[in-house]
């Protein structure tokens, strides 16, 4: 009797282990192949060159700059709106059928395929608002994409603050806004920040919506510099510039014949994976650092 039960236990253990090996093994294999193919191409020349017809002279500079600028717009637009919406829903809104509906919708939006956001952006930003296939359009599109994720994670972080802390602030005569600004936001900052970084790391790898709004695959120039030598020293021309981003550059290389461009694609892939991992690492670090300070 005991033997039979022990047998089923061993069986499950073996099953679980093989599932784990299969999952992790595939990942390791994939990443290993990428590493072998790409690491040889990942040098300074590759990082600082424009695309070229010759694989060995091609580089990823416009894509890195494009990704960075698009992320900048995304963060600048998506984070304040997302955090503010979450605060409103969690701290201010009364529970009615309308807020319930909004809650469900936001949660569902987080699961909508990203190309749908691309289509929406094509209609709204490119055609209706006439923003063209620009960095601004791409940034706004990705901002829409991360909005539900930011809202959901921010709400979770806010909800983790014990009600006793809020009541302590209210009992001292604080207004709702004082309670939010002095307590709720600072204490949930680590959770909010983690959510933001994870959302951005998802956005940086997005390809479909960016293709939909019309990013280029071959681009031999950089957007205008945001800093100029004439007053007012700041320029926003870059917002309207055509662009490419890393995943699209990578796709462009993959789709070309020949071994040498495949190496470029692998190197771009490595860079992308590296950036995503770095952002995730930062998220973990931030959470770890700030959790240590805030406790109750």
């Amino acid at each position: 009797m005991i033997k039979r039960r022990k047998f089923s236990e061993a069986l499950f253990k073996a099953l679980g282990l093989s599932a784990l090996v299969l999952a992790v093994g595939t990942l390791v294999l994939l990443f290993g192949a990428l590493l072998i193919d790409g690491v040889g191409r990942l040098d300074w020349q590759f990082l600082t060159s424009f695309p070229s017809r010759h694989a060995s002279q091609a580089g990823i500079l416009p894509a890195v700059v494009g990704s960075t600028l698009v992320m900048l717009v995304t963060a600048f637009v998506g984070i304040p709106i997302g955090v503010a919406a979450a605060i409103y829903l969690e701290e201010y809104a009364r529970r009615t059928w309308l807020t319930e509906l909004i809650e469900v919708t936001v949660t569902n939006l987080a699961g909508v395929p990203s190309i749908i956001f691309g289509l929406l952006a094509l209609g709204l930003f490119v055609y209706m608002l006439g923003l063209g296939s620009s960095i601004l359009t791409a940034g706004l599109t990705l901002a829409l994409l991360i909005l539900p994720v930011v809202i959901v994670t921010t709400r979770e972080a806010i909800r983790a603050i014990p009600v006793q802390i809020r009541e302590a602030a209210f009992a001292l005569g604080a207004t709702r806004w004082q309670t939010v600004a002095d307590h709720v936001l600072p204490y949930s900052a680590s959770g909010i920040l983690t959510g933001i970084i994870l959302a951005l790391s998802r956005a940086i790898g997005e390809t479909a919506p960016i293709v939909t709004v019309g990013a280029l695959t071959f681009i031999a120039f950089l957007p205008p510099s945001p800093i100029t030598d004439q007053p007012p020293y700041l320029s926003f021309e870059w917002l309207m510039s055509p662009f490419t981003v890393m995943p699209i550059q990578m796709f462009g290389w993959v789709s070309r014949p020949g071994e040498d461009f495949a190496a470029n694609a692998a190197a771009a892939g490595l860079l992308l994976v590296g950036m995503t991992l770095a952002m995730n690492g930062l998220a973990i670090y931030v959470r770890y650092r700030m959790r240590k300070r805030v406790s109750w």
Partner: peptide, 8 residues
């Protein structure tokens, strides 16, 4: 309050 609730 019942449970000490200092701010962090």
């Amino acid at each position: 309050f019942q449970k000490p609730n200092p701010f962090p």
